[in-house]
Design a protein around this nucleic acid. Structure first.
Length: 431
RNA sequence: GCGACCAUAGCUCAAUUGGUUAGAGCGCCGGCUUGUGGUGCCGGAGGUUGCGGGUUCGAUCCCCGUUGGUCGCCCCA
């Protein structure tokens, strides 16, 4: 139905558990990136189309058919960012950030790609992103990957994820390897899947991670990169592996692991899981030493990764939702003003408070319980100030007394003489 | 861009080989009960079965189209 109120395909309305999981991931990222000295940056959600077209490669699917591009009112072609890296590099060049190099940067936010939605894949999706710009040493790769590993550990999902590591070599290595692969697959082209025949022209490295069964047989006999590695590239990869071992980061060598975008060199890695169906990569990244220079900036080595927030969110344990600490329940309308004063006092002392103000006393209590409040404070219509309040704890676990005393201490002076008898189900004495 | 499966109340699902007023639970609204309270009971609102067409005496059920969802291919984090 054309006039139906509906959201755009591939977008999400996040609420409740969904957004709680989302926040769990982002909070952990912010905690961990500080431990490693990565500074927050924020770059625009849209850039000139050329920023992405040039960096990702004009022929890649992302650029040729998945970007949200549009002309603005001034006639400029703009594009909603399909990834973070290109924007980071553009900012690095635009702002002369080489004065700060090496920079360790972190960002998170929405990205946009016009793809068919499926599990773990959306048209507006969200990523965490970490980059080290201006450091060409293998120790930078190690630090970056170690941060990813620690993030997964703090999210409690390290046991569901494996780090796959490979190298794409330097330019010379990559060239030689690519030529050998093309020769190998071309010789067996008639046994190749139709998609892989196309890939042979566009991106032959991608044949290596084809899911087609017969492709996989050819991949198994395909030449590896190691035979084509220059001694410099080999030494670099060796140093990365040694560093990871020293840092206690477990990994497996994945000789068929390649990257989607043209700009990657040397280290390539993915943290993958088999818990998410077809979209198993949870963090993916690598080194992109030539990118900033090809975009018109100074020759700058760099390495980075991106992580799918939605994918990580699906892996983390059931989150505990946000809870109200105290529910204030005025027995009837006549005491609502008084209840409002108490609510204001409690909130100003840092307690999260909800006030029930609909229906009869019974209904109000139900609404309060629904907020998940641990502590209930009833305000009665009769008696002295100290008698009008009744404080009870709904959970009644070992911490109940602590919670009750906390609320009591935050009450306005005239209410503090509340009777011990008014506490329910525990031994608190308030006097 | 390609393929498979799915589409019933706000939500999760029923409806016996196509059969007459399409049901339940939860949620929502109202009432009663309950003297420290997410209880129990009663009642109520809410559906042109995604949309359009076809077959049939008759379609939630079968067929075609369309829109949307889910999963996979592709791509990629």
């Amino acid at each position: 139905m054309a006039d139906k109120v509906q959201r755009v395909r591939g977008t999400q309305d996040l609420y409740g558990d969904d957004i709680a999981r989302f926040d769990t991931v982002v909070d952990a990222f912010n905690r961990v990136r500080k431990l490693y000295g990565f500074r927050r940056v924020d770059v625009p959600v849209f850039e000139f189309t050329s920023v992405f077209a040039r960096s990702l490669g004009e022929t890649t699917d992302v650029v040729s058919k998945e970007m949200y591009s549009f002309d603005d009112r001034g006639g400029e072609s703009l594009t909603l960012r399909p990834e973070f890296t290109a924007g980071f590099c553009r900012a690095y060049i635009s702002n002369g950030w080489q004065q700060f190099a090496p920079m360790k940067l972190a960002a998170h936010g929405p990205l946009f790609r016009y793809e068919r939605p499926q599990k773990g894949r959306y048209r507006q999706f969200h990523q965490l992103d970490a980059e080290i710009i201006g450091a060409g040493e293998p120790a930078a790769d190690v630090e970056l990957i170690a941060m990813g590993a620690q993030l997964l550990g703090e999210l409690g999902i390290a046991d569901k994820v494996t780090l796959q590591l490979n190298t794409l070599g330097d330019a010379e290595t990559r060239h030689a390897w690519r030529a050998a692969l093309v020769a190998h697959f071309r010789a067996n082209a008639d046994a190749l899947s139709r998609e892989s025949v196309e890939r042979l022209e566009k991106n032959p490295l991608r044949i290596l991670d084809s899911k087609d069964a017969t492709d996989r047989e050819l991949v198994a006999t395909a030449p590896g990169i190691d035979a084509h590695m220059t001694s410099e590239a080999g030494a670099f990869f060796e140093a990365v592996q040694k560093g990871l071992q020293a840092a206690g980061v477990a990994f497996v060598r994945a000789p068929a692991l390649v990257r989607g975008f043209d700009y990657y060199r040397h280290t390539a890695f993915e943290f993958v899981t088999d818990h998410l169906g077809a979209q198993g990569t949870v963090i993916g990244g690598g080194r992109y030493d030539g990118l900033i220079e090809t975009m018109g900036g100074p020759s700058t080595p760099a390495v980075g990764w991106a992580a799918g927030i939605e994918r990580l969110a699906m892996l983390v344990a059931e989150p505990v939702g946000e809870r109200i600490e105290v529910a204030v329940i005025p027995e009837e309308q006549s005491v609502e003003a008084e209840a409002q004063q108490i609510v204001a006092a409690l909130r100003s002392r840092g307690l999260s408070v909800a006030m029930a103000y609909r229906g009869n006393a019974k209904r109000r209590a139900e609404l309060a319980a629904k907020e998940g409040a641990e502590t209930l404070l009833y305000v009665r219509a009769t008696g002295q100030a100290k008698d009008r309040l009744n404080l009870s704890d709904r959970v009644r676990d070992g911490e109940a007394a602590v919670r009750l005393l906390k609320v009591l201490g935050a009450l306005p002076e005239q209410y503090r003489q509340i009777d011990g008898d008014d506490f329910v189900g525990d031994a608190v004495t308030a006097k």
